[in-house]
Measured scan of single mutants.
Amino acid sequence: NNDALSPAIRRLLAEHNLDASAIKGTGVGGRLTREDVEKWLAKA
């Protein structure tokens, strides 16, 4: 759900042209964290 994304995470996803639904969030309530996105980028 994009409503649950912080502005910083939205920007990070946009910079790398990523789809938030492709990344499993580990934050509160399954929210994406910066670490989630960075780990996903490291694997890609």
Rank of each mutant, 00 (worst) to 15 (best):
N1P: 12
N1L: 11
N1Q: 13
N2C: 06
D3N: 12
D3Q: 11
A4G: 14
A4W: 15
A4M: 14
A4T: 14
A4I: 14
A4Y: 15
L5S: 04
L5A: 05
L5K: 03
L5Q: 06
S6P: 13
S6A: 09
S6I: 06
P7H: 11
P7F: 02
P7G: 09
P7W: 01
P7D: 14
A8G: 10
A8F: 05
A8N: 10
A8T: 11
A8R: 10
I9D: 04
R10K: 13
R10T: 08
R10Q: 10
R10P: 01
R11L: 08
R11S: 09
L12T: 05
L12E: 04
L12P: 00
L13R: 00
L13M: 07
L13N: 00
L13D: 00
L13E: 00
L13Q: 00
A14R: 09
A14S: 11
A14W: 11
A14M: 09
E15I: 11
E15F: 08
E15R: 06
E15Q: 11
H16P: 00
H16K: 02
H16Q: 02
N17V: 05
L18C: 02
L18D: 02
L18Y: 05
D19S: 09
D19L: 09
A20I: 13
A20D: 05
S21Y: 05
A22P: 05
A22I: 13
A22Q: 15
A22K: 14
A22V: 13
I23Q: 02
I23H: 02
G25I: 04
G25K: 03
G25R: 04
G27A: 04
V28K: 11
V28R: 10
V28I: 12
V28E: 14
V28Y: 05
G29M: 07
G29V: 03
G29K: 06
G30P: 01
G30N: 06
R31F: 07
R31M: 13
L32V: 14
L32K: 01
L32Y: 03
L32E: 00
L32A: 04
T33E: 03
T33S: 05
R34G: 06
D36K: 00
D36H: 00
D36N: 01
D36G: 00
D36S: 00
V37H: 00
V37K: 00
V37Q: 00
V37R: 00
V37G: 01
E38Q: 08
E38H: 06
E38A: 06
E38T: 06
E38S: 04
K39G: 13
W40R: 12
W40G: 09
W40I: 15
W40V: 15
L41T: 02
L41S: 01
L41F: 08
L41I: 12
L41Y: 07
A42D: 15
A42E: 15
A42H: 10
K43T: 13
K43L: 14
K43Q: 14
A44F: 15
A44G: 08
A44V: 14
A44R: 05
A44K: 07
A44Q: 13
